[in-house]
Amino acid sequence: MVTARGKSARGSSGYRDLGRRLSDKAKRRGPIRLTPADTVFNVIMYAALAFVLIIVAYPLIFVLSASFSEPYAVISGQVWLYPVRFSTVGYTTIFRDAGLMRTFLNSVHVTALGTAINLMCTVMAAYPLSVKTFVGRGVFMGILSFTMFFGGGLIPFFLLVRNLGLYNTYWALVLPGAISVYNVIVARTFFSTSIPYELYEAAELDGCSDIYYLIRVVLPLSAPILAVLVMYYAVGHWNAYFNHMIFLKDKAKFTFQITLRSILIQNQNSDMMIDASVLQRQQGLADLLKYSLIVVSSTPMLLLYPFIQKHFVKGVMVGAIKG
């Protein structure tokens, strides 16, 4: 009988074989007929998910439609579902910016570099912490957790980065946040709960070292958590702008979000001391740009998601525990 303690019941070899025998049996039996309870559940499940889909999709469609509408239509609240007086002026305004492509590539560069470093360092921190016999893990955990709450503030941090000679380089954006303690904790939890201890015991018996075990056994089985980490870190780097604005001096090095924000601010500037010719830039355009910017800014990350999703395939564990 499968119970809440099913995991620890896995300890006995008999159960492992049971799993294999059952799946063979299930395959021979053919498709499983649904019980009435299951049908009800399915109906509720589909209904709930469809409901969620609609309430989430509608505002998204709105954002998309607004971004392709004429400024006046947006500002007067005429856009509801589809673009009103189709216009690409929001996008042409954005793409007209000469520096945009370069900053886009810069962001890709920073995101790729940063995510790679993040991933490595997070695993290098999370895996040892997940090993129960790793002496000092409590202390190390404490050292890391303390930094989640307490820090010195922007100025000492900036001075440090500068004194290390990292100012105006991409290293300043990528090294200080090499690990996010939150993500380390999440990864550690995954390692300690999803990788069965039996595997480690078997590997130990075979005489394989910690690093070998990590690389050859743990990581291949950790595709889901690695995918999640990639997603978290990549999105973080892609959306970051504050640190970028603080640490980058050369305009040539600026990243995507910096440019996007500038475009938005420029068209939103309501400082009354500004020349009327700037105010002349339609207020509606400023409103419109907000929507176009979201579409432009988030598309790369949205395109990334299916690749992440690929790794959330169930049943990675099947066959992991063999004799």
């Binding site: 290098m124 040892p128 000492p156 941090f157 090499a178 910690d210 990590l214």
Partner: peptide, 19 residues
């Protein structure tokens, strides 16, 4: 293994802690 991320935390999080 742990040394690398630990070093990063010590330098970049504890370094400015005096602030």
């Amino acid at each position: 293994l742990f040394l690398v991320p630990l070093a990063s935390v010590l330098i970049f999080s504890y370094g400015p802690m005096y602030g």
